[in-house]
Write a protein that binds this DNA or RNA. Sequence first.
DNA 1: CGGCCTTTTGAGTTCCATCAAACGCCGTGG
DNA 2: CCACGGCGTTTGATGGAACTCAAAAGGCCG
Lengths: 343, 343
Amino acid sequence: MSKKVLIIEDNDDIREGTAEVLDLAGYKTFTAKHGKIGVDLALKYLPDVILCDIMMPELDGYGVLYLINKNPQTANIPFIFITAKTERADMRKGMEMGADDYLTKPFDDLELFKAIESRFKKKQQSKTIGASAGSVEAILAELKAKGKLRPVSPKQIIYLEDDEPTHLYYLVKGQVKTYKRFKDGRELSSGLFHDGDFFGYESLCNGVPYAENAATLAASEIIQIPKIDFLEYLLSHQAVSKTFISLLSENVHDKGKQMLQLAYSSVRKRVAEALLQVAEKFGGTESDACTIKISRDDLAALVGTASETISRMLADFKDEELIDKTGNAINILSMSKLRNVKQ
Amino acid sequence: MSKKVLIIEDNDDIREGTAEVLDLAGYKTFTAKHGKIGVDLALKYLPDVILCDIMMPELDGYGVLYLINKNPQTANIPFIFITAKTERADMRKGMEMGADDYLTKPFDDLELFKAIESRFKKKQQSKTIGASAGSVEAILAELKAKGKLRPVSPKQIIYLEDDEPTHLYYLVKGQVKTYKRFKDGRELSSGLFHDGDFFGYESLCNGVPYAENAATLAASEIIQIPKIDFLEYLLSHQAVSKTFISLLSENVHDKGKQMLQLAYSSVRKRVAEALLQVAEKFGGTESDACTIKISRDDLAALVGTASETISRMLADFKDEELIDKTGNAINILSMSKLRNVKQ
DNA sequence: CGGCCTTTTGAGTTCCATCAAACGCCGTGG
DNA sequence: CCACGGCGTTTGATGGAACTCAAAAGGCCG
């Protein structure tokens, strides 16, 4: 059966021209002259690859990509941007959002074929489940190889509450938080992640929509692994099951601890704990002192309190010479003393 | 190799007499004349079955059983009480604590052999991993068959924080809560369980001591499944992995929700939620009304507040005709109205 | 250097924990 | 049968911790 290609592009000449070329090459093509139609067609025909312009009326390319990624049925379709814009910024934005490739107009037919074919080749490759009976690391590495690496800038949202999970995430490098939003808009951080952490697996594991949001705190590199690949590995490799059962158990353990604190510890104690948690996750050195950079709002979300209160507590800690502040950053002078904060 | 039997009994005649008989029957016997020595020997020789008197100097039989059960190495050794006491109460207490059988003095040699041999038969049986490739239920039933059923009265502790996990628990019938204890003694419930629930698996899953306590709220029947059997099944049956991955994920999900509430919801709202949670778990009917019986302290632990506050809130709810009280029990008049409690 | 966003400080208020005392329920023993 | 004590629950009064709103100060970017 011939591969299906969806072309979303507002310029009639380019759209029809490209379609014609691809038809001749044996692909089955669908065309849409703006984003909205494009998304409808994608859902209807589930193409094998999507080519999409960025600047379009109705719904631009970024919007199309967002919607495509949000829907589990279409989330794993390779997505290639076509655009006249050659600027770096746009290219980066597109790749950050999870596009697989980029074609800059004008492109010749060879470029087009190569871009599309290399998508298929990559997909093909990742279809096979390796038989590496080796170490956990080897199998997890294999799993990671199924995903695509994506640079993400700070304060970018990775997924949102109630979205259908489509990927497992692995943080190669950077800082990510997961958080829940209370009705009135206040946030509570439920997890912090740094280099080498997996996240976003709970919802995948029992097939429900996300119960939390995830966003980067700092510039990061994230591998996103398609849901089906993850589930396949989860159920066919003991090592993978074992890893994620451990992760989940740890998660339960940590959340239980945090719950007890939330219920009965004073804000003062909880702020101290939060500082230590951030320091352990993101702080560099192994020594008793450490410098962390985090906004008051993020700290407040971690503690479950108002940001004003955080300011006051930090002022108190500074008076007591537990911490110091240089600009926005917080220097923890003694982790051990901070750990001993009572009440 | 001959089976090892440990006999713990303060009466010299009975102890040596029993040992002699068992020696003749080809068992290797060890004897202890009181509980303390008994526990030491159990740990040293890891016998295949333990016979133990109840009334003893130094450390009584219940104490021995408790210590034996607490230690992972000895927790799964079949334990048989020998005692002159024929009273029901003692027998029940012993069985509730996890004894496998009961011999009442005076016993004849046949009774003795049968009691011991039937322990071995049972152990043997449960050694084989069934190949039932059938439904999840079938495999889980097989897993449950590895454990032993134990009746437990209300307010009994099943395991304690920092204990080494030795069993997976399955609640056949009854009500169980898990809870954490804050430094100052206040409690926070982290989970409620009712008929058909597994509990105590998180700590088993990542091999750490319990992070919480578990106790019955009402008279219950609990199957305790030895740790090794559980882990064996967990890693060799996809269905079991899948089940527990789901349970863990749900757990994470629920705890996340509860954390958000603890952080930002008013006590009023949290009390309403707690009532609903208890009603859903333990309340009988499917209708909008429902009666639950729970102590104010348990409710307070569930909400994470003082029991006085619970009293006040319940009084408020009664004024607003959301609930009614008959004696100790709480009649929820309208679950849907309770769900809509704002703030 | 000025504008904007973040952080800090201030004042008032609310919610809830705590301490104490009274009340009701229940089994016990006189 | 009722008085009694113990336990769990309810009610009252008070204080403190932390939230809210508001305004000032500080840091960062163009």
